[in-house]
């Protein structure tokens, strides 16, 4: 999907609301994608590199939630060489 000049909603209120909704959708997608990766055995450094954010940021945002969801997280010592 491209948001070129042609597809920008004509009403500013609609365009701005779309930004808000897309941010929320992106957050939901991030939650689901990070959980999927961690369930598949990805490590924090791998997920953070894939997302292009720091390891601390990903950890801070998702660790508690994933632990609460019962996801087994790989620890630093488990890194495969």
């Amino acid at each position: 999907m491209s948001v070129g000049e042609n597809s920008l909603p004509p009403e500013p209120a609609d365009a701005l609301a779309a930004v808000v909704a897309l941010r929320r959708l992106a957050d939901q997608l991030e939650d689901a994608a990070v959980e999927q990766a961690m369930r598949a055995g990805w490590s924090w450094p791998q997920v953070s590199e894939a997302l292009g954010v720091t390891r601390q940021a990903v950890h801070k945002k998702h660790a508690k939630r994933l632990i609460a969801a019962g996801v087994k997280l790989r620890r630093r010592g488990d890194e495969r060489v």
Binding site: M1, L8, D14, A15, L25, Q28, D31
Partner: peptide, 16 residues
């Protein structure tokens, strides 16, 4: 409004 359907993703509900 920007041609996106949340249903298309079939995402699980927002996690806490």
């Amino acid at each position: 409004m920007v041609g996106v359907s949340p249903a298309a993703y079939g995402l699980p509900g927002p996690s806490h």
